[in-house]
């Protein structure tokens, strides 16, 4: 069996987040070198603050400033920091209960090695030089052997509060299309379109996915289809998509290749867009170096009869 294809797949998007009143005050506070907690109905101070009381579910907004010094409640050594983590050199992940708070905040502790870290050790905030209203405004924590710092008396009212943040997300996958699609893609390089037939219902799937979605059986028998086919239905796209170098309007069509039991989707060219019709007979147009046909164009055959393709829309 030939080797199955694989390739990196990176998905990233700059999601935005509206903060609401409590997170707005917390992040704006960090920008101003102030750490805020929220007081719950039973009098505890939660840092970082939350919008709703975890015990009573009531809305809470009594913000109180806590000190930038605190105590490590537990920790884990990070031997190999990754991209995007707070420090580039090995560090400890720590939960720190700041002086004046009842809960602990997760952050990084800059320490020379795991031997220098212990539960109960005293630490203080090291502020980032440039602060924008983000958890990274606390660059990290560092060991502290002085007195507890005195918290200020901020109640969370700031000029020019932050209303929203950008929360970029990134996922790195290794993607494999599997055996059936690898074979399909291999055949395309020889400009052949090869599907697979279900051993039970005998339907031919192009592109093949390795199993029949109706019968749940693995497919193996390869069947060459096309190259000609019939436009079964279509739309005329009038909006230009980002990242797609196609002039509008263009026709996006479902094409039932001769011998296939499911239509595939492709662009129609070589004919004015307003003359494309259901039943039009088409064939692929290949371009040098491309994996897929660039588009499909009309053949000189007469249109297919509706009865012959009405199950393949």
């Amino acid at each position: 069996m030939p080797e199955v294809l694989s390739a990196p797949l990176v998905l990233e998007f700059p999601f935005t987040r509206s903060l609401g009143p409590v997170q707005s005050a917390f992040l704006t506070g960090l920008r101003e070198r102030v750490v805020l907690g929220v007081r719950t109905t039973d009098g505890r101070v939660l840092v970082p603050p939350v919008e709703y009381d975890p015990v009573t579910a009531e809305e809470i907004h009594d913000l109180v400033e806590v000190a930038p010094t605190g105590t490590v409640t537990t920790w884990a050594w990070n031997h190999a920091p990754r991209r995007g983590q707070p420090l580039a050199t090995p560090f400890a992940w720590v939960l720190v209960r700041l002086d004046g708070a009842d809960t602990a905040l997760l952050h990084a502790l800059d320490a020379p090695g795991p031997d220098a870290v212990r539960t109960g050790m005293r630490v203080r905030v090291r502020w980032a030089e440039e602060r924008t209203g983000a958890i990274t405004d606390i660059a990290c924590f560092e060991p502290h052997d002085g007195e507890p710092a005195q918290p200020g008396d901020s109640t969370g009212a700031f000029a020019d509060p932050l209303r929203g943040i950008v929360a970029p997300a990134r996922l790195d996958y290794t993607y494999s299309p599997g055996r059936a699609q690898t074979a399909y893609i291999g055949a395309l390089s020889a400009r052949r379109i090869v599907g697979e037939r279900c051993p039970s219902c005998r339907k031919v799937y192009v592109p093949p996915r390795g199993a029949c979605p109706t019968c749940g059986l693995a497919t193996a028998e390869q069947v060459e289809v096309g190259p000609r086919g019939t436009v079964t239905t279509f739309c005329i796209v009038n909006i230009k998509a980002k990242n797609l170098d196609i002039e509008v309007p263009y026709v996006y069509a479902h094409i039932a290749l001769d011998g296939a039991d499911l239509a595939l989707h492709a662009r129609i060219g070589g004919i004015p867009y307003d003359r494309v019709r259901m039943g039009l007979r088409v064939e692929p147009v290949w371009t040098e170096g491309a994996r897929y046909p660039d588009h499909y164009r009309p053949t000189s055959e007469p249109d297919a009869d509706y009865e012959t393709y009405k199950e393949l829309l």
């Binding site: 299309p177 699609q181 893609i185 739309c235 796209v237 994996r291």
Partner: peptide, 9 residues
Amino acid sequence: IPFQQPLLA
């Protein structure tokens, strides 16, 4: 998705 033609529409 790698190896797939981008969806057009």
